[in-house]
Deep mutational scan, measured.
Amino acid sequence: KKVIATKVLGTVKWFNVRNGYGFINRNDTKEDVFVHQTAIKKNNPRKYLRSVGDGETVEFDVVEGEKGAEAANVTGPGGVPVQGSKYAADR
Rank of each mutant, 00 (worst) to 15 (best):
Thr29Phe: 03
Arg50Ile: 11
Leu9Pro: 09
Leu9Gly: 08
Arg46Asp: 15
Thr57His: 15
Val80Gln: 12
Lys67Gly: 10
Val33Gly: 01
Pro81Met: 11
Val74Phe: 00
Val3Ala: 06
Ala39Trp: 03
Glu56Thr: 05
Ile40His: 00
Gly53Arg: 12
Asp32Ser: 06
Val3Asn: 14
Lys47Met: 08
Lys13Cys: 06
Gly22Thr: 00
Val33Trp: 00
Lys47Asp: 07
Ser51Ile: 06
Leu9Tyr: 09
Gln37Pro: 02
Ala69Thr: 13
Pro45Cys: 09
His36Lys: 04
Gly10His: 00
Ala69Gln: 13
Phe23Met: 03
Lys86Asn: 09
Phe23Tyr: 06
Ser51Phe: 06
Gly68His: 09
Val62Glu: 02
Phe60Lys: 00
Asp90Cys: 09
Thr11His: 12
Gly65Cys: 13
Asp90Ser: 10
Glu66Arg: 15
Pro45Lys: 14
Lys47Phe: 07
Glu31Ser: 11
Asn16His: 13
Gly55Gln: 10
Thr29Cys: 07
Lys42Leu: 14
Ala69Asp: 12
Ala72Asp: 15
Thr57Trp: 13
Lys47Ala: 08
Leu49Trp: 08
Asn44Arg: 07
Lys41Ala: 10
Asp90Phe: 09
Thr29Ala: 03
Gly22Gln: 00
Gly76Val: 07
Arg91Ile: 11
Val8Asn: 02
Gly79Thr: 05
Asn27Gly: 11
Thr6Gln: 13
Ala72Thr: 14
Lys7Ala: 08
Arg50Trp: 07
Ala39Gly: 11
Val82Glu: 04
Arg18Pro: 04
Leu49Val: 11
Ala89Val: 15
Val17Tyr: 06
Leu9Val: 14
Asp54Lys: 15
Lys2Leu: 05
Lys86Ser: 12
Lys2Asp: 06
Thr38Glu: 05
Ser51Gln: 05
Gly65Lys: 06
Glu70Gln: 15
Gly10Pro: 00
Gly53His: 09
Leu49Gly: 05
Asn16Ile: 01
Gly22His: 01
Thr6Tyr: 15
Val8Gly: 01
Asn19Trp: 09
Val58Gln: 00
Tyr48Thr: 09
Thr6Asn: 14
Val63Gly: 01
Ala39Ile: 01
Asn27Phe: 13
Ile4Val: 10
Val58Ala: 02
Ala72Glu: 12
Gly68Pro: 01
Tyr48Asp: 11
Glu56Phe: 03
Gln83Trp: 08
Trp14Ser: 04
Asp54Asn: 14
Lys30Gly: 14
Tyr48Ile: 11
Asn16Val: 01
Trp14Glu: 03
Lys2Asn: 12
Arg50Glu: 04
Val82Ala: 07
Arg26Asp: 02
Asn73Tyr: 08
Ala39Glu: 14
Val33Arg: 00
Arg18Gln: 13
Tyr21Ala: 02
Asn27Lys: 14
Lys1Val: 05
Ser85His: 10
Gly53Leu: 09
Glu66Pro: 15
Arg18Asp: 05
Tyr21Ser: 02
Val58Arg: 00
Gly10Trp: 00
His36Pro: 03
Pro77Leu: 10
Glu59Tyr: 05
Phe15Glu: 02
Asn44Pro: 07
Val82Ser: 04
Arg91Thr: 11
Thr29Trp: 02
Asp28Tyr: 01
Asp90Gln: 11
Ser85Lys: 08
Val58Tyr: 01
Val62Gln: 03
Thr38Trp: 05
Phe15Val: 00
Ala88Ile: 07
Arg46Phe: 15
Arg50His: 08
Lys67Val: 09
Asn44Met: 07
Glu66Leu: 13
Val8Ala: 05
Asp32Lys: 02
Ser85Arg: 08
Arg18Glu: 04
Arg50Ser: 11
Glu66Ala: 14
Lys86Phe: 08
Val82Asn: 04
Asn25Tyr: 11
Thr11Trp: 04
Trp14Cys: 04
Asn43Tyr: 12
Thr11Leu: 06
Lys42Glu: 15
Gly65Asn: 09
Ala69Tyr: 13
Val74Trp: 00
Glu66Trp: 13
Val8Ile: 14
Gly55Val: 02
Arg50Pro: 08
Gly10Asp: 01
Glu64Cys: 12
Thr38Tyr: 07
Thr57Val: 15
Gln37Cys: 07
Val82Arg: 04
Lys30Cys: 12
Ala89Gly: 10
Thr57Leu: 14
Asn44Leu: 06
Lys47Tyr: 08
Thr75Pro: 00
Asn19Arg: 15
Glu56Asn: 03
Lys47Glu: 05
Val52Thr: 03
Lys67Leu: 10
Lys47His: 08
Gly22Ser: 01
Phe23Gln: 02
Gly78Met: 14
Asn19Cys: 15
Glu56Arg: 03
Thr29Val: 06
Gly68Leu: 06
Ser51Arg: 05
Gly53Cys: 15
Asp61Trp: 04
Asn43Trp: 09
Val80Pro: 04
Tyr87Trp: 10
Lys42Met: 14
Asp54Phe: 13
Val74Leu: 08
Asn19Glu: 15
Ala72Phe: 14
His36Leu: 03
Tyr87Val: 07
Ile24Leu: 12
Lys13Arg: 09
Gly78Tyr: 14
Ile40Asp: 00
Asp32Leu: 03
Val74Ala: 02
Asp28Val: 02
Val12Asp: 01
Thr29Glu: 03
Ala88Asn: 08
Asn16Thr: 03
Gly76His: 05
Arg91Trp: 08
Val3Trp: 05
Leu49Lys: 06
Val52Cys: 10
Thr75Tyr: 05
Lys7Ile: 02
Thr38Val: 08
Gln37His: 08
Ala5Asp: 15
Asp61Phe: 02
Gln37Lys: 13
Phe23Pro: 00
Ala71Ser: 07
Lys7Phe: 04
Pro45Gln: 10
Gln83Ser: 10
Lys42Cys: 10
Val82Trp: 04
Gly53Thr: 10
Asp90Leu: 10
Val58Glu: 00
Pro45Phe: 10
Gly10Arg: 00
Val80Cys: 15
Val35Gln: 01
Val58Ile: 09
Thr75Leu: 03
Val33Phe: 03
Glu70Trp: 14
Pro81Leu: 07
Lys7Ser: 11
Asn16Gln: 03
Asp61Gln: 06
Leu9Trp: 09
Phe15Arg: 00
Val52Pro: 04
Ala5Thr: 15
Glu70Leu: 11
Asn43Met: 11
Asp90Met: 11
Gly79Trp: 04
Thr11Ile: 13
His36Glu: 03
Glu31Asn: 14
Asp28His: 02
Val74Tyr: 00
Asp90Arg: 08
Val8Glu: 03
Pro81Trp: 12
Ala88Lys: 10
Asp61Arg: 03
Glu31His: 08
Val82Met: 04
Glu31Val: 13
Lys2Gln: 06
Val12Ala: 03
Val8Trp: 00
Val3Phe: 15
Lys30Pro: 03
Ala71Pro: 00
Glu70Gly: 04
Glu59Ile: 13
Val80Ile: 14
Arg50Asn: 12
Arg50Gly: 06
His36Gln: 03
Gly22Tyr: 01
Glu31Cys: 08
Lys86His: 11
Gly20Asn: 07
Gly20Thr: 02
Ile40Val: 14
Val63Gln: 07
Gly84Thr: 04
Val12Trp: 04
Glu70Thr: 12
Val17Pro: 09
Arg46Ser: 12
Arg91Val: 09
Val80Gly: 13
Pro77Ile: 11
Pro81Phe: 13
Asn27Val: 08
Arg91Phe: 13
Ala71Lys: 00
Gly79Leu: 05
Thr38Met: 09
Asn44Glu: 05
Val52Ala: 05
Asn44Thr: 09
Phe60Ala: 01
Glu56Ala: 06
Gly84Ser: 06
Ala89Gln: 13
Phe60Pro: 01
Asp54Thr: 15
Tyr87Ala: 08
Lys30Val: 05
Val62Ser: 01
Asp61Val: 04
Phe23Gly: 01
Phe34Arg: 02
Glu59Lys: 03
Thr38Ser: 13
Thr38Ile: 06
Arg26Ala: 03
Lys41Glu: 13
Gly76Ser: 07
Asn25Lys: 14
Gly10Cys: 00
Gly65Thr: 13
Ala5Phe: 15
Lys13Glu: 06
Val33Thr: 05
Lys41Ser: 15
Ile4Trp: 06
Tyr21Arg: 02
Gly53Glu: 14
Thr6Met: 13
Phe60Asn: 01
Val8Met: 05
Thr11Cys: 11
Val80Tyr: 12
Lys42Val: 09
Val33Ile: 14
